[in-house]
Computed example of a mutant assay.
Amino acid sequence: MKLKFKIKQDQQLREFIAEHDISEKLLSAIKNNGDLRVNGEHVTVRCLLRKEDMLEIIFPEEKRGKQLTPAKMDLDILYEDEYLLVVNKPAMMPCIPDHRYHDQTLANGLIAYYESIGLDSTIHFVNRLDRETSGLLIVAKYRYIHYLLSREYIERKYMALAYGQVSDQTIDLPIGRLSRHVRREILPAGKPSVTHCHVLKQGEHFSLVECRLETGRTHQIRVHLSAIGHPLIGDRLYGDIRNSAGTYYLHSYQLRFTHPITKQVLMFVEERPIDEAYYQSD
Rank of each mutant, 00 (worst) to 15 (best):
L26G: 07
A29D: 13
N32V: 08
N32D: 11
N33P: 02
D35L: 06
D35C: 05
V38L: 12
V45M: 11
R46T: 02
R46H: 12
R46I: 01
L49G: 10
K51V: 11
K51A: 15
E52N: 14
E52S: 13
M54W: 08
I57M: 10
I58V: 11
I58N: 07
F59S: 02
P60V: 01
E61F: 00
E62R: 04
G65D: 09
T69G: 00
A71L: 09
K72D: 12
D76M: 06
I77G: 14
L78S: 04
D81Y: 00
E82Q: 11
E82W: 03
Y83R: 02
L84D: 07
L84V: 11
L84K: 03
L85K: 02
L85S: 01
K89V: 13
K89G: 07
P90K: 14
P90E: 15
P90Q: 15
M93W: 00
I96C: 03
P97K: 04
D98E: 09
H99M: 07
H99N: 04
H99W: 01
R100E: 12
Y101R: 00
H102L: 08
L106W: 10
N108A: 01
N108Y: 00
N108V: 03
L110Q: 05
A112F: 08
L119R: 12
D120A: 13
D120V: 11
I123E: 07
I123K: 04
H124K: 12
V126C: 05
V126E: 05
V126S: 02
R128I: 01
E132G: 00
S134V: 03
S134G: 08
G135N: 08
R143L: 15
R143M: 10
I145R: 09
H146I: 06
Y147R: 15
S150V: 14
